[in-house]
Structures are given as C-alpha cells and as structure tokens.
C-alpha cells in the first residue's frame, strides 16, 4: 500500500517539475520575443519612409538605417537560440512564429528596395542571424519565410500607388513584373488549407491593384514607352545564352 502511494506521488511530482520548468522557459522566451517584436516594429517604421513623397529619393539611406537595426534582430535571435533546446524548436515555435514572419517581411522589403529582386532564403536567414536548415539548429521555418513574402506583396501593392503619387511612373511596371513572378512562384506550391493558403489567396488582389495602377497610367499616356523591365530581361537573357 505504501509503495503504491509513494509511486503515485513520485509520478505526479516529476510531472509537476516538468511543467514548472517548461513554464519558466516559456516566460523567458516571451520576454525575448517581446523585445524582438519591438525591433521589428522599429524597422518597419523606418521602412515606411518610402511611402512619403520624398521617400523615393531617400531609399538608400532608409535601407541603410534598417540594416543597422537588423543587428538588434540578430542579437535577440542569438539570445533565443541559447534558450531553446535544439530539438524543441517546434515546441515553442508559436511564440516567435509571428515575429519571424514579420522580420522576413522587413528583410525582404529592404532587399527589394536595394536591388529590386526577391530575397533568397539564405539571405533572409543571414539577416536574421538564424540557420537555413533545421538540422543546423535554430532556423527560419519555410512556412514563415513564405508568409513573409506574402506580406511583402501586400506592401508593394501599396508602394505602387504611392510611387505614382510621388511622380515615379516607371516603378509600378517594375513592381508588377516582380509581383507576377512572385505569383508564378506561389502557384507552384501545393498549399494546405492553412493560414499560408489564406494569405496566398489575397495575393491576387494585390496583383489586381497593381495592374489597375498600370492601366491608369497607360490610358493617360503616363507609362514610359520603352518598358524598362523587358529591356533588362532581354539583356540578362542574352547574357545567359552567351554563357
């Protein structure tokens, strides 16, 4: 009888200990993630400058500012990395899922503004200071990365509108080209019926918005005659064939 009750107590006590330690860890993670969210907001605020009338000319300066702030991001992730046991990434993933989507988005936006190209996964991971592959430790989840790209599409549709307001009539065409590439890419994926799928469904509205902008420009003769995108494309094609 005594042995039975003792084992009872032992079993439940060890579980109690388990949930207590887990609870503590969660608290610590939450604190770091809160700081990380703050940084993400700060970067986004900086990048919002491009929507201002003067913003287009200041793009390099804005990006540089954002790049500096990414150091904080790397610092926070490093801290988080030291807290989360390497084989339990997905146990606590929910805590930083949203913030890493947000950060992928701001990283992708920075890269787009700098080079007008799609951020690579490796590039994003490097900017965030995490690994690409799960086996290497604290990494950037693929679904989070893709979610970040969809946030980017949202932002760029808005950017197209504002760049016209600021008098840059060339930009929407380039943006449209970029977005259609993104759409093409996402159409290759077989998405499950989850949040990523839902977000993807809104991509077509962003595309539509940009097409409307271009339509408005072209019927008023504001669209440049020589399409800058296709010209660039042609060049790069020839290069590719040449090599």
């Amino acid at each position: 009888m005594t042995t039975e009750t003792k084992s009872f107590a032992e079993i439940f006590q060890s579980f109690q200990k388990h949930i207590d330690t887990e609870q503590d860890l969660r608290e610590e993670i939450r604190l770091i993630v809160r700081d990380q969210e703050q940084t993400a907001r700060r970067i986004l605020t900086v990048l919002q400058g491009v929507h201002q009338p003067e913003g287009l000319r200041e793009i390099p300066a804005i990006c540089e500012k954002a790049r500096i702030l990414f150091e904080d991001v790397r610092k926070h992730f490093k801290e988080l990395k030291s807290k989360v046991p390497s084989d339990q990434y997905y146990k606590f993933h929910d805590h930083w899922r949203f913030v890493s989507q947000r950060l992928t988005f701001v990283a992708a936006l920075t890269v787009y503004l700098e080079t007008e190209s799609l951020i690579e996964r490796e590039q994003a991971a490097e900017m965030l200071g995490v690994e690409v592959d799960r086996t290497q430790g604290f990494h950037l989840d693929l679904e989070d990365f893709l979610m970040g790209l969809l946030y980017l599409a949202d932002e760029l549709a808005r950017f197209a509108v504002n760049s016209v307001t600021a008098g840059d009539y060339n930009r929407p065409t380039r943006l449209a080209h970029f977005m259609s590439q993104l759409d093409l890419g996402f159409r290759l994926l077989n998405l499950k019926n989850d949040s990523l799928r839902k977000k993807f469904d809104s991509l077509k509205y962003n595309l539509k918005k940009i097409e409307e902008v271009i339509y408005d420009l072209s019927i008023r003769g504001l669209k440049p005659q020589i399409d800058p995108v296709t010209a660039v494309e042609e060049n790069s094609r020839e290069d590719a064939v040449g090599t």
Partner: peptide
C-alpha cells in the same frame, strides 16, 4: 529557366 521558378520548385519539394 526563370530564377524564381527554380527557387520555388525547391520550396515546393520541401513543403
């Protein structure tokens, strides 16, 4: 041959 297709093909496989 589009670079973005290549990239997304990889994502497709992984997902």
């Amino acid at each position: 041959s589009l670079p973005c297709v290549k990239v997304f093909r990889k994502f497709q496989e992984e997902l």
